[in-house]
């Protein structure tokens, strides 16, 4: 779903639909797909940029979220294991959102193994099984735009949907994330907070993060 998607529909499409309506319909259908920063974003969409790509998301009126369904006691689209999905997302945020006083987006790119390790420590039972469950959940969270998973490089970072969280809704989330187990590599002391993610990444993966499986194996210790 968030794989590279060709440029928007050619304007020659045999259709009488206004181009901006079709562009919004397309963005809705493709989920959180991205375009290059240099490409113009269709009007009326919400955008989240990490500096090189821009993700296009459908807007919600008046800042409403699907949580409004709860007020009406109406079931949202079903998720297979919503509790597990939320916990894996929380474990990922624990790793990808090291500076909690900042916004979670765009966050940090971290080894998948770190997230699996945090999730395993959060879970009761067989840690190996927990890691396997979490791996599937990471894929689903990627497919739905909550996380950006790079399976080749075995890294994960926050997804563009996280960019839509309004700042005033993040308080309790920050408290929750703080209480989760730390990622396997010791987090830096407060006064060194800017350095560690870069230090950790740069010596191992200078430019292209193509090391397959390395981070996962490290974290599996």
């Amino acid at each position: 779903m968030s794989a590279p998607v060709p440029a928007p529909v050619p304007s020659s499409a045999p259709s009488s639909v206004p181009a901006e309506v079709l562009a919004r319909a397309r963005a809705r259908l493709l989920g959180a797909h991205s375009i290059a920063v240099s490409d113009p974003a269709p009007p009326g969409l919400v955008t989240a940029s990490d500096g090189s790509r821009v993700w296009l998301l459908s807007p919600w009126p008046d800042g409403a979220t699907p949580a409004v369904l709860e007020e009406y006691d109406i079931a949202p689209m079903p998720l297979d294991r919503p509790g597990q999905a939320r916990r894996v997302l929380a474990a990922a945020l624990r790793c990808c959102w090291p500076r909690l006083d900042e916004a979670p987006w765009p966050g940090e790119r971290v080894p998948v193994g770190d997230v699996l390790e945090v999730y395993a420590r959060m879970s009761r039972g067989d840690p190996e099984l927990a890691r396997r469950w979490a791996t599937g959940e990471l894929r689903r969270l990627h497919d739905t735009g909550w996380l950006l998973l790079d399976e080749e490089a075995a890294t994960v970072r926050p997804g563009p949907r996280i960019a839509l969280w309004p700042e005033d809704s993040l308080g309790s989330l920050r408290d929750l994330i703080r209480r989760l187990p730390r990622p396997p590599e010791p987090l830096p002391r407060v006064d060194e907070q800017a350095a560690p993610a870069d230090e950790r990444r740069e010596p191992d993966v200078p430019h292209e993060p193509q090391e397959q499986g390395g981070p996962v194996e490290d974290a599996g210790e």
Binding site: D62, P66, L69, Y72, I74, P76, M77
Partner: peptide, 22 residues
């Protein structure tokens, strides 16, 4: 306005068709 937004979110995000009376 709130009623319009609620109806919009409901038809777009509910798993099933929502009852008109609500």
């Amino acid at each position: 306005r709130a009623e319009l937004v609620a109806a919009y979110m409901a038809v777009e995000h509910a798993a099933e068709p929502v009852p008109e009376v609500r």
